[in-house]
Amino acid sequence: MAEHKEDHEEHGEHAHIGIPGYLVVFGILVVGTIVTYAVALLDLDSKLFPGANTLVALLIAFFKMTCVVLYFMHVRWQSKLIWLTALAGFFWMAIMFAFTMQDYLTRGSGTFTN
C-alpha cells in the first residue's frame, strides 16, 4: 500500500494522553459547563454589546468541543485527512448558515410580515 504510508506517518500506535490527561480534559469540560451557566446569568448584552451573551456561550462551547475532538476523539494524533474531514464538516455547515442568512439578513423590513 504505497500510497497511504505517507498519511500514516504521524499516527503513533495507540496515541492518547493517558488517564491523568483524560481526567484533566474532563475537568476542563466540567469547568466549562459551570462557566457557561454562570456567564449566562450576567447581563453582558447591556454591558458589552447585544449578542455578547450568546457569543461567549458559543466560544465556550467551541472550546469544549475542541477539547473533546482533539483528546477524547484522538484527532490530535490522526492523519491530515481526518483533520481535514473534521474541519470540512464544520466549514460546510458554515456555508449553509452563511448562504441562508445572506438572504434573510438582506431582506427589506417589509418582507417580514406574517
Binding site: W92, I95, F99, Q102, D103, Y104, T106, R107, G108
Partner: peptide, 21 residues
C-alpha cells in the same frame, strides 16, 4: 455546486441581494 442553490428561488421571495450572489 453547493453555493448556487438560491437560483431556484429567484422569484419566490428571497432578497435581491441574495439573488445577485
Amino acid at each position: 455546486g453547493f453555493l448556487v442553490w438560491g437560483h431556484h428561488m429567484f422569484v419566490s421571495g428571497q432578497s435581491i441581494y441574495a439573488g445577485l450572489v
